[in-house]
């Protein structure tokens, strides 16, 4: 064809790519999100007393493992979930960020406990951050002081729900 300019060709290729992505995105995205939902590995980062209920949640009575959250014994490099278990102090905050930066993408954060959300009981303490939003982006907030293991499990299920409807990148 005579009027086949490079611009037209590029537009055509772009449209083709869009069409391909549109057709294969739903199944592949669904498959990948499904994989992510059922294999959330939390980092073992304990910041304060909420870690106790986190331990209880992975214990035999509550057993978060049945929801696809695996116990937190793994290495940082294979984790994709960070559960901030309570108060983050000024000494801990840089470390929390450092750990978050070392995790591979995609990564999710659950803020567990009143302290992680707003500072909780320690809102007027000189050494406590008023919430962790200022250092890491939070996906799910789990209120309570400490949250009961059931609440934590509900938070995890909410996170899975969220992952399910996120667009695959």
């Amino acid at each position: 064809m005579k009027n086949q300019s490079p611009t037209n060709f590029n537009i055509w290729v772009g449209k083709l790519k869009e069409a391909i992505v549109k057709t294969i995105e739903p199944p592949i995205g669904y498959a990948i999100n499904w994989g992510r939902i059922w294999s959330l590995w939390p980092v073992h980062l304990e910041t304060a007393c909420c870690s106790l209920e986190f331990g209880a949640a992975s214990g035999p009575r509550y057993d978060v493992e049945r929801f696809g959250i695996i116990e937190a014994f793994g290495s940082l490099r294979q984790c994709d979930l960070m559960v901030i278990q309570g108060t983050v102090t000024r000494k801990m905050a840089p470390r929390v960020r450092m750990i978050y930066d070392q995790m591979p993408d995609p990564k999710y954060v659950i803020a567990m406990g009143a302290c992680a959300i707003t500072g909780g009981l320690y809102f007027d303490s000189y050494n406590v951050l008023p919430g962790i939003d200022s250092i890491v982006p939070v996906d799910v907030y789990v209120p309570g002081c400490p949250p009961r293991p059931e609440t934590l499990i509900q938070g995890c299920i909410l996170l899975q729900e969220k992952i399910k409807y996120t667009k695959f990148r």
Partner: peptide, 14 residues
């Protein structure tokens, strides 16, 4: 130590 220092003793005073 000191990663969870939350100033309990100071908080008691107010």
């Amino acid at each position: 130590p000191g990663y969870v220092h939350r100033g309990e003793e100071k908080m008691c005073e107010y």
